[in-house]
Design a protein around this nucleic acid. Structure first.
Lengths: 149, 149
DNA sequence: GCCGATATAAAGCGCGTGCAAGTATTTCGT
DNA sequence: ACGAAATACTTGCACGCGCTTTATATCGGC
């Protein structure tokens, strides 16, 4: 039974490592984005996801998936960002139940201002993680990930 | 400047992938542990961390690091688990600011009951992720992580 | 046209979190 | 040996999240 137990332990260990690295990065980002640009990590994630759609829109449900949020949280998040003038809701023509969401110029601008901070902090956090024995291998694997899609 | 920009994009992509995988797993675990054993993921993490100390204690601050929580969250989490009789606080003699924490038999038992669920869900979630093109490489890397320490 | 399914909104509820401030205890500089 | 700075934990507060319910509009099949 050693073999099966080993597999269990490897999975658990992998998950712990993943969670630890995620926590480390998220905490750093949260503080920096909040302090410097009044954005939470999820908010940044949403704006970033929208911008990467490059000229195209995203539906609420896609956004929810992209940000790993519940439907209700997504509604509130979009409302919040809409009220700050960073994005707009657009009823879409083909399926009028759906709602598209699009960055405003102000949103793009804020995102552009925030990106350098984001990358700097991300780099720092990864560096810090790479200096931690348990996390280093994962950080390394992350760098080697197939660059695309 | 292409090279520097590429590095930025690779880091960002890696982080997005990490966050996506983390979110997927955490959501699955959260639901399953909550439904089946009345435990949140962090609670499980804490109990698990304590058990892996095997007979030894952990200080609040160590626990905080292990669970990627703030100090205050840790206080409340420990209080919660203590009130459920799953662990005990132990004032430690040598440094009277510090507080050790230890699993009770009830805590060990609940953890033992929960472990199978945890592994089953983790396995499922990883399988699901492996079937998702963007996530598959990371899942793979996770399996190949040095099995150590 | 009608009915069941789908996409989103809005509001209420309980909960856990982080931050900032507060208390206790130890450590350090001189 | 004494006061200041550091450390370990706790508490008050505001906030965002998930879940659930209620409501509205729309789509698709028959």
């Amino acid at each position: 039974m050693g073999i099966a137990d080993d597999a269990v332990e490897i999975r658990a260990q992998g998950w712990r490592t993943l969670a630890a690295l995620h926590g480390l990065i998220e905490t750093s980002l949260e503080r920096a984005l909040q302090a410097g640009h009044d954005l939470s990590v999820v908010e940044y994630t949403v704006l970033d996801a929208l911008s990467r759609q490059d000229g195209w829109h995203m539906r609420m449900s896609q956004l929810a998936r992209a940000a790993a949020l519940s439907g209700s949280a997504t509604t509130r998040l979009v409302t919040r960002l809409e009220q700050r003038g960073l994005l707009t809701r657009i009823l879409c023509a083909d399926d009028r139940r759906g709602i598209y969401t699009e960055l405003t110029p102000a949103g793009s601008e804020l995102l552009a201002q925030t990106r350098p901070t984001h990358d700097r902090v991300l780099t720092d956090a990864l560096g810090q993680a790479a200096a931690t024995p348990e996390l280093a291998p994962l950080v390394d694997a992350l760098h080697r990930l197939p660059a695309t899609r």
